[in-house]
Design a protein around this nucleic acid. Sequence first.
DNA 1: TGACCGACGCAAATCGATTTGCAAGCCGGG
DNA 2: CCCGGCTTGCAAATCGATTTGCGTCGGTCA
Lengths: 332, 332
Amino acid sequence: MSKPVTISDVAARAGVSPTTVSHALSGRRSVSPSALARVKQAADDLGYRPNQVASSLRTQRTHTVALIVPDIANPYYPAVARGLHDAIAADGYYTTIGSTDGERETELGFLDEMVRRSVDGIIVFAFAMGEEDLTRVVPARIPLVVATHNLTNAHDQVNSDDPAGTETATRHLLAQGITEIAFVSGPKGRGPGDRRLTGYTQAMHSAGIVPTASDIIRSDYTVAGGRQAVGELLSRPRPPRALVCANDLIAIGALEAARDAGVAVPADLAVIGFDDVDAASLVAPPLTTVVNPAYEMGRQCGRLLLDRLIEGYDGPPRSVVVPTHLIIRATA
Amino acid sequence: MSKPVTISDVAARAGVSPTTVSHALSGRRSVSPSALARVKQAADDLGYRPNQVASSLRTQRTHTVALIVPDIANPYYPAVARGLHDAIAADGYYTTIGSTDGERETELGFLDEMVRRSVDGIIVFAFAMGEEDLTRVVPARIPLVVATHNLTNAHDQVNSDDPAGTETATRHLLAQGITEIAFVSGPKGRGPGDRRLTGYTQAMHSAGIVPTASDIIRSDYTVAGGRQAVGELLSRPRPPRALVCANDLIAIGALEAARDAGVAVPADLAVIGFDDVDAASLVAPPLTTVVNPAYEMGRQCGRLLLDRLIEGYDGPPRSVVVPTHLIIRATA
DNA sequence: TGACCGACGCAAATCGATTTGCAAGCCGGG
DNA sequence: CCCGGCTTGCAAATCGATTTGCGTCGGTCA
């Protein structure tokens, strides 16, 4: 039941004051070589490990950033987390991840808790919150990066170039002479679906086609959701010849729905996804999709935060756009 | 630049002392109805949010548990994280995840940092650490759950029933009259490969077959690693007729290797994985695999911790075994 | 030699909440 | 009327590190 070693214990053993121990270990003020050696020795002997909670209280820095995502089980987000980690770990920052199921209440609750915990920065991949929620819950003193969201100009933001991605995807289909193209989005106003929709719409317009309401269907961002939505779509009298999907999980669900319905992919139904999660290249047939560099997204979020936390940048909000590109496999 | 509201600010506005505010909000001592009302009103008006860092310093509780995994991008672990989250969130605990690439140094570094941060509990899915590492770095006062590891009797542990899983898988192959079965493991002494190997060996023995060294090949736990290892295996003069793989990613790599080599699955090569990650049912052909309930593993880890953190259990280490079962799809 | 400066050490204040110990006020029972 | 007990409030100690302010000591330069 040995209690933890404190800075006073080290000081006592080295025969100096806690002040000197602190300075010796942090190097913030010079310490005589002999004292330095004694302190290091004592700290070593006792196995001293500074209490970060106490340190954080005093310095008002926790060396922690919060990452809020809708669903950590969606393979896109672990890759984001990885990119973020790799961007900030070298500077001693750690990440706390919150998975919120895209529920506004949960998002707000987690955000609030992170503020109470004095995290140094926050990265939000949020679905259900609005700008006013963010500014209400997050004090201005905490740097905030908003990702994959079309809601704010008041904060740093990182976005994949969604419109360009779906536009390229849609053009790829049009170039094959396919014109009956539907877009499978997520719930209205939630997630990147709406921004991806614009690229599709644009490409269609510039081909002289005006998509009707029935060309745009809504799902959630899961395999099961995609399967069901596309299943219904395929049972229509005149189903489309191709689908542009708001993410890969929906697209994978679409492949399942096509198989269920005995529809050949890509011969009778071309399918394009978005994200390029690992599974996209593994499904059968391998999915044609828009690469959305999750790792890079996470990394850029980390960089924007570090700019404010370490470099001391204090200017106006900045916006980073991460390019996307189409990777053609076997479904379109 | 409004600075955060402190308990003293609330006290001042309510016309009471900080003590009373604390008691009013925590309910740890009764407070007169009038004072209670004034405190609540003041806290509300000011938007008071108690500083958790200060609270943690005083109470020695952070309401945080650390989860250490080798690779958060391996889809098995997000599911674990999810199960853990669901087990402990209701009691106000949050999770900090560390991804260590299975490097001993990284594992130890993260563990050390978590101790400095005074987490209330630690869950280790570790690859490279030994028992003595754990006891050295983690003080006895912090509850520790070791998962998927064969190294300790000194701590609570949670394991999937790995031997039973691979034994069932191997018997499934033997029952089809297949006897040339290889086992594709991970690096020696790292991860669950060795425990899964024993089930395979047992089943083979009880069928009167003694696997030779060349029947057991080593890889890492990734798709790329599995592809390469199995690719080499298939170029042998007499390749095996079936594979039992230490995890799904290896098995998926094996499917790719088979495709590369023009070997038909399952006709010429049967493949069985382990874990049943989401992608397992999505690959072509869908993977026959042993279900390793990640979510349940995480949940059980959380329960063991809470038992000590909340229920006050203080007895000897306990061991939970989560059952596994074979799910037959199309590769064996 | 005296003035000045840098190096170095320590006491004490600080971060913000929780909790202990003490005391005042109030009640009912003997 | 007094005492014990309950409620309620506050001052102060506490958690463990960091940092400010002050003072001492030695050395340098004029």
